[in-house]
Write a protein that binds this DNA or RNA. Structure first.
Ligand code: MN
Ligand code: MN
Length: 268
DNA sequence: GTCTCTG
DNA sequence: CAGAGACAACGCAGG
DNA sequence: CCTGCG
């Protein structure tokens, strides 16, 4: 079977046993939502998370493009602390479908683009809840939004598809990753001054006291965040989904949207 | 999912 | 030939 | 140096 010229193997293999979703379901999801996900993938180094035998089996992260990946897949060399990686870049539909056929469930993207790897064009406030209470997480997102709004920064919102929320905005590519991260850290410290019982940047889990962790180190060089519209390797096939601020009030968890209901979601 | 190494 | 292993480091905080 | 963290 071929879709857009890409060989699809084992289309009936079940990758999400709980929702009975097959490999073809995954590939069709990425095909049908390519218009939404591609703008977020284009031009950015990727880390893949693959589950060739389904999310109930062992999966693996992949930072380096496999030698056997076809020529239509773009790659980029990125410097690491000790050497380099050859990252995959998903610039077209064929690449997206090929990687999906490879069992890629999750696409994690850099905060910078390949033509200026050392200057991020995105800032993310990665909000990681200690556990349970999604309501306090929503509250945290709201107060951070208002805080940034007063500084003239308009941010957007994405469910991570697991437990947290990502609040993010774009900027001109003038700062290094170190500068960007330090700026987010300072903003987070200011926020903690205002909401000491709600937010924390303590690195040790034991020191977080049930508060919401603003994971500012996500803004460091070489780090990735889950790409908007990426599937997650959860039993229900949840999806990292951009949502409006109005929509935030009505959702009950970060896994609100999944393979089964994403198509019926009201558009914004 | 595919390659490579080992027996 | 079948079966097992690899496929991710990494960048930072804090002690 | 080490471990924890995501
Ligand atoms: Mn998170
Ligand atoms: Mn995080």
């Amino acid at each position: 079977m071929k879709i857009h010229g890409v060989d699809i193997t084992n289309p009936d293999k079940i990758l999400f046993p709980e929702s009975n979703s097959s490999k073809l379901d995954v590939i069709n999801y990425y095909k049908n939502f390519s218009g939404q996900i591609m703008p977020f993938l284009k031009g950015r180094p990727l880390t893949l998370r693959r589950f060739p035998d389904g999310v109930n089996h062992q999966g693996f992260f992949q930072k380096n493009a496999s030698d056997y990946f076809p020529d239509f897949i773009k790659t980029v060399e990125v410097q690491t602390d000790d050497g380099k990686n050859v990252s995959v870049v998903c610039n077209n539909l064929k690449t997206l479908l090929y990687l999906a056929n490879q069992g890629t469930i999750e696409f994690h993207t850099w905060l910078s683009r390949i033509d200026k790897l050392n200057k991020p064009d995105k800032v993310v406030f990665d909000l990681d809840p200690a556990s349970g209470s999604f309501n306090s997480l929503k509250n945290a997102a709201e107060v951070i939004r208002e805080f940034l709004d007063k500084k003239g920064i308009r941010c957007k919102l994405t469910t991570s598809g697991k437990n947290g929320l990502h609040l993010w905005y774009t900027k001109r590519r003038t700062q290094t990753f170190d500068q960007s991260r330090e700026e987010v850290k300072h903003l987070a410290e200011e926020l903690i001054g205002l909401y000491p019982d709600l937010l924390t940047i303590e690195m040790r889990k034991d020191d977080r006291d049930g508060k919401i962790f603003i994971d500012y180190p996500r803004n460091s060089y070489g780090q990735t965040t889950i790409c908007p519209y990426s599937l997650r390797a959860t039993l229900n096939g949840s999806i990292a989904t951009p949502i409006s601020w109005e929509e935030l009030s009505s959702i009950k968890s970060s896994q609100e949207f999944n393979l089964g209901n994403i198509s019926k979601r009201r558009r914004h």
